[in-house]
Computed example of a mutant assay.
Amino acid sequence: MPLIMLSSPHAHGGDSVRMIMLTVILALLPAAAVSVYLFGWLALLLIMTCMLSALITEAVCLKWMGRPVSTLLDNSAALTGLFLALTLPAATPWWMAVLGSVFAIVLGKQLYGGLGYNIFNPALSARVILLISFPLNMTTWIMPMTAGDPAINLYDFSTCATLFLAGPGALQLGFDAISMASPLGYVKTEATLGVPVSEALKAYDYSYLDAFLGFEAGSIGETSALALLIGGIFLLARHSITWHIPFTYIATVLLLSGLFNTLNPDQFAPPMFHLFAGGLILCAFFMATDPVSSPVTPLGQVVFAVGCGVITWAIRTWGGYPEGAMFAVLLMNCAVPLIDHYFRPRVYGHDHRNES
């Protein structure tokens, strides 16, 4: 059974797969709640559409492959849909949400044999496909309701439903009227123009407190560091994850950004900016710790997390795309078999050097 693969260090105490998935869903509820507070009905419509589409797609796949549809009760498809929704901009239209959910379940999960066999995080895989296919939609950030003068009332269901189903044109608005740059995107754009990081942050009116609480533009589930940390601590307390990946991942990014910011503060962003901006905390606690697509040994997890941290910081600093967290996790997913091979526990009395 593929579920045997979930008996990694992430699953303790004999918890069932259903309970593990439910625990992660509960851990994501603070971030989901903040997303609804910031983006109103748009966030709720996006979350519901992704989760429902993932469940329907999973049911169709199971039926087509002759497997019991009751497998849906393990909560993995619902979690994949929730994960995907939280990585998307609030302006994502309904058809992209559905398409992304289909990609996540079919290409990211069932194509490899279902739960326990996928080598990549399904939700991140789908997000990258959407980003490559629809870059404009995936980099358009709606102004949250906490912005000084939001162009539309995101707490009005009719307005949000029209925007979600028909786009801003139906409201006689363009994306420019209702969107704003994310902190990462703004700093990256200004850097290409030769503007020092400190001046760019000042011009953006960037606040660490606002970023910590979630009052900044970004994907609906990545804006509030506080909400994500609450969920991450819950997972640690429940022993659903261990400290090795999230703490090492975040520490690596902070160490690199702190070192280079000290050497040249005009060119390199400070550590706290990297910590609170973008999807670092979301990926560190929720995506990189996926028990199927991450290493099984503590030492292997540390190596995996260091790789995620280095790649995340490198892409954010020198890459053409402002955010590197999701690419870092997917790239390191590719290295998991190699990491597991070299960092697997040594069997007592067995010399691996004799293996071919």
Score class of each variant (00 low, 15 high):
Ala104Gln: 12
Ile105Ser: 03
Ile105Gln: 09
Lys109Met: 03
Gln110Gly: 04
Gln110His: 11
Gln110Thr: 07
Leu111Ser: 13
Tyr112Cys: 04
Gly113Ile: 03
Tyr117Gly: 00
Ile119Lys: 09
Ser125Asp: 01
Ser125Asn: 12
Ala126Pro: 01
Val128His: 13
Ile129Tyr: 13
Ile129Asp: 05
Leu130Lys: 13
Leu131Lys: 01
Ile132Glu: 05
Ile132Arg: 08
Ser133Lys: 04
Ser133Pro: 00
Leu136Ile: 13
Asn137Ala: 13
Thr139Tyr: 00
Thr139Glu: 01
Thr140Pro: 13
Trp141Pro: 12
Trp141Leu: 02
Met143His: 08
Met143Trp: 04
Pro144Asn: 02
Met145Arg: 12
Ala147Met: 09
Asp149Gln: 09
Ala151Glu: 14
Ala151Thr: 12
Ile152Glu: 04
Leu154Ile: 06
Tyr155Ser: 15
Tyr155Val: 10
Phe157Trp: 15
Phe157Cys: 12
Ser158Pro: 07
Thr159Met: 09
Cys160Asp: 09
Cys160Asn: 07
Leu163Val: 14
Phe164Pro: 12
Leu165Asn: 13
Ala166His: 14
Ala166Val: 01
Gly167Glu: 08
Pro168Leu: 04
Gly169Tyr: 05
Ala170His: 02
Ala170Pro: 05
Leu171His: 09
Asp176Arg: 11
Asp176Ile: 05
Asp176Cys: 04
Ala177Glu: 15
Ile178Glu: 03
Ser179Phe: 03
Ala181Lys: 11
Ser182Asn: 04
Ser182Pro: 07
Ser182Lys: 03
Pro183Asp: 09
Pro183Arg: 00
Leu184Gln: 13
Leu184Val: 02
Gly185Leu: 05
Gly185Arg: 02
Gly185Ser: 03
Val187Gln: 06
Lys188Leu: 01
Thr189Val: 00
Thr192Met: 04
Gly194Ser: 05
Val195His: 00
